[in-house]
Amino acid sequence: MTAILSLDNVTQRFGGLTALDAVSLDIAPGEVVGLIGPNGAGKTTLVNMVSGVYKPSTGTITFDGKRIDGLKSYQIARLGVARTYQVVQPFPEMTVLENVMSPATFAAGNLGVEAAQEKALEALRFCGLDEQAQMRASELTLAGRKRLELAKSLAMDPKVLLLDEVNAGLNPAEIDLALDLIRRISAKGVTIVIIEHLMKVVMNLCSRIVVLHHGAKIAEGTPAEVTSDPHVIEAYLGNRYARKQAGEAKEGADG
């Protein structure tokens, strides 16, 4: 199966800092891939590069058979790559409906006002935000604003959706709702890359997990493979703990 999104040897430098270091990654259509790693690992940077905020220092990014590195963010959005922000980015003075109408108007083909409104309402219903449609975006709760981000990206009819910590700051009940929502989006056939700190979420949703550490890809595989990988444990917990774990595993095998 050919990848819908692939990064080939992508490096991003900021001055002296290498935020992403020769990362290669292939994502198949319909997959839900988890992207994990400690703070500062370069996860947000990866999303920013794919969505056109930065142009990679070196390397290429291909989406749907087309090179997209170096394209502007609006071009990438129109091709069908949507992203949410770790720090939510609404249009604060507009209503929730207008917020969601904006991608429907500008990214999802040339829709007129009525069609855009219809599409926006559909996305709002899908995300359970239709009751708040006439509220100002700045009046929503944090959970509401996170769902607004999701609704905005859905209204673009994306092929690939990049979710940057959509659950950060939510309580367990809200997280369960969000999980359900993401599962339903995936069921529509949308390919999802999700950045997440909560292992519960990642283990639940993802068929495959990619681990970044200091800008480099250090592991990749099924949730079970990744969580037992000593490199990953080392990255997260420091190497003393990793050695101890490895030792225990060895003892277990010996005994």
Binding site: V53, S73, Y74, A77, P103, M156
Partner: peptide
């Protein structure tokens, strides 16, 4: 509509196309 988006959040404006 696009200009109003730009006024309120230019970065997000690019992301919505």
């Amino acid at each position: 509509f696009g200009l109003r988006c730009i006024r309120q959040n230019e970065d997000a404006s690019g992301m919505v196309g």
